Computed example of a mutant assay.
Amino acid sequence: MKVLTPDRCDAIIRTSFGSIGVAVEENEVAAIRIFPDLFVEKMARDDLSAEAVRQIGYYLEHPGTCLDLPVKKTGSETCRRIWEAMMSIPSGEVRTYGELGSLLRLSPAAISLACQENPLSLYIPSHRVIAITGSQGPVGEGDPEHPDIRIKYWLLKHEGFLRA
Rank of each mutant, 00 (worst) to 15 (best):
I89S: 01
G64Y: 10
P70D: 05
N118M: 04
S76V: 10
E61K: 14
I89G: 02
L104N: 06
P108Q: 06
Y123C: 12
P125W: 00
P63W: 04
S91M: 09
A114T: 03
L113S: 09
Q116C: 13
R81L: 12
R95C: 13
I82S: 05
T96N: 02
E117K: 15
E117T: 09
R95Q: 15
E61T: 10
H62T: 15
P119G: 08
S91P: 07
Y59L: 15
N118A: 09
E61W: 02
L60I: 10
W83L: 10
V94T: 15
S126T: 11
Y123F: 15
L120Q: 09
S91K: 09
P108M: 03
A110R: 15
C79K: 08
G75M: 03
E61N: 12
L122R: 00
L104W: 04
S121C: 10
A110D: 12
P63A: 03
L69Y: 12
L69W: 10
G98H: 07
R80D: 02
S107G: 06
K73F: 00
C66R: 14
A109I: 08
G75W: 00
S112K: 14
I82W: 10
P119D: 07
E93I: 02
Y97A: 12
R80H: 06
W83I: 12
Y97T: 08
G98N: 11
S112T: 06
P119K: 04
N118G: 11
K73N: 07
R95Y: 07
C79D: 14
S126L: 06
L69D: 09
P125T: 04
Y59A: 09
S102N: 13
M87K: 15
A110C: 02
E77W: 08
Q116I: 10
S102M: 12
I111N: 01
L104V: 07
A114Q: 06
A109Y: 06
L60H: 08
A114H: 03
S107P: 05
G64W: 13
L104G: 05
M86K: 01
T96E: 07
M86I: 06
